[in-house]
């Protein structure tokens, strides 16, 4: 028998007993997460010796990482792509659909203008965020479909757009927080 490492052989889906797909059943995920936490949380081994505590902490950390990845739609899609042997690509890889890039730049300009839009700022921001959210919704749906159909090249391009959108959504969120204050 080979000396096994506690966790590396299973991928996140196997660990949570879920089908490999980025359409994750969140209820099943949450339920399995609680079960695994109950089994491996270091507190269950607080009275045990150092070595057991260490192994339990390693497994619990792995369980947390898996949960955080699968619960987040973008991270989950990226992970699915990695499982198929495809790297999402470094940020330096700048080949990107020009039309999408144009739209990005427009949104960014709108966002900058909102800062000094006065009374109308909140309404404008809300409408921009609505646009971003609905685009994310569409892209994530497409990504899942292409991933499930093993069309990794298309999926990879979509995921990179998705990454951009999440970033600009975060910036919009920051602007919203500033307006609130």
């Amino acid at each position: 028998m080979n000396a096994p490492q506690p966790d590396v052989r299973q991928n996140f889906f196997e660990l949570f007993e879920l089908p490999v797909s980025c359409s994750v059943d969140r209820v099943a995920l949450r339920s399995k997460y609680m079960t695994l936490q109950r089994q491996f949380h270091p507190d269950r081994y607080a009275a045990a010796d150092e070595q057991h505590r260490r192994v339990a902490a390693q497994i619990a950390a792995r369980v947390n990482e898996a949960h955080d990845t699968l619960i987040n739609p973008l991270k989950c899609a990226e992970y699915c792509l990695t499982l198929q042997g495809v790297d999402v690509g470094a940020e330096t890889d700048s080949s990107m659909d020009p039309q999408f890039l144009m739209e990005q730049m427009e949104w960014r300009e709108t966002l900058e203008d909102i800062n000094d839009a006065g009374d109308d700022a909140e309404r404008q921001l809300e409408s921009l965020r609505e646009d971003i959210r609905s685009t994310i919704e569409t892209i994530s749906k497409d990504t899942r479909a292409h991933l499930d159909a093993n069309e990794v090249v298309v999926a990879r391009d979509l995921i990179r757009k998705w990454q951009f959108l999440v970033k600009i959504d975060k910036e919009a969120q920051a602007v919203a927080a500033k307006l609130d204050a």
Partner: peptide, 12 residues
Amino acid sequence: VARRMNATVGDL
């Protein structure tokens, strides 16, 4: 120890 731990994961 590691193998027993794994077996516990498996059982679970």
